[in-house]
């Protein structure tokens, strides 16, 4: 009987600790990115030759509305716009941020999420920036 106890306690400890490690890995899942950080940034970012932040944000909003997004939040000071779009059974969430780049340009970054998947496809973001550029009468320029 005593011999058996000697094995039960370490075995139980192993099971419990395995459980704890298991929990930790699911939290880590939320921070995993597929592309390299630099690559993703350049896919999601464009520069525009304007300094009119408010006008840019109004155009970001109207472009998102053209794409069937409902705007959930917007903040002029932070330069952020967040919206949700329903697509069949899925939800697309997108945040767009606008900030100054030097004295003559604005940087626009879009982050889209399809369900629980982060969108990393360059073509999808290109579609958005094309539409945004058209509404601003400006060209979306790639940045390094």
């Amino acid at each position: 009987m005593m011999k058996l106890k000697k094995y039960i306690i370490p075995a139980a400890l192993i099971i419990v600790s395995a459980g704890i490690i298991g929990c930790e890995t699911t939290a880590n899942k939320a921070f995993v990115t597929q592309e390299s950080q630099v690559q993703l940034r350049s896919i999601q970012t464009r520069a525009f030759d304007t300094t009119d932040k408010k006008k840019m944000m109004q155009n970001v909003i109207s472009t998102m509305q053209d794409l069937d997004f409902v705007i959930d939040k917007a903040d002029l000071t932070l330069g952020s716009v967040t919206g949700t779009k329903y697509l069949g059974q899925s939800t697309v969430a997108m945040t767009v941020t606008v900030r100054a780049r030097g004295e003559k340009q604005l940087l626009v970054r879009a982050n889209a999420q399809f369900g629980t998947e982060s969108v990393a496809d360059p073509g999808t973001y290109q579609d958005f920036f094309n539409a945004l550029g058209k509404s601003m009468f400006l060209t979306a320029q790639e940045v390094d």
Partner: peptide
């Protein structure tokens, strides 16, 4: 698995 479709940020 969820496959992310493309073209959903293009005006219809």
């Amino acid at each position: 698995c969820v496959t992310v479709p493309t073209g959903f940020l293009k005006p219809q």
